[in-house]
Amino acid sequence: MELERFELGATHYKESDLKEGKLLSLPWTPNLKYAWDNGVAIGRYLAELKEGRIIARKCNKCRRIMLPPRMFCEMCWRPTDEWVYVKDTGRVNTYSVCYVNWDASRIKKGEKPHLPAVIEIDGASPGMGILHLLGEVEPEDIKIGMWVRAVWKKPEEREGAITDILYFKPVRR
């Protein structure tokens, strides 16, 4: 059965066909609102962020100090045991220089690119990275392995969110 011998389905149309009304469609914009509960582990994590601290959870079986904190260890499949404060410094595991917004629109001319990175936090077990942003650095100066420190919002502006850390900036070691 060679594919070439069949009449294949799917009829292509252009985006402009919709705009010009050549094809009819029914638009719908959902307007639902969600409120996500923080839960036990992330609830404490956020409360500590509000105080300008990063907290992790330790499993006494595998001895991993885990970030983000969790009430159960997915490796040992048992409850975790202790809260452990970790530092607000770490190393860049990997990074990107991103010119696209979340909905695939492009950043505006003159706007700085997003600088997402995976940052391995000091005091957590090796490889325990979190997703965050880099700042106060030119894209060409970013290196995998570079040391960074959290830049926090002012205490009165913090609201108990991951964005209480504005970004991580390079530090000398």
Partner: peptide, 18 residues
């Protein structure tokens, strides 16, 4: 993750780029 990642406005391409 809705609490620890979405507030950073990630796009799918981030994880591939990283």
């Amino acid at each position: 993750d809705h609490t620890t990642e979405q507030p950073l406005n990630p796009t799918l391409i981030w994880i591939f780029a990283l």
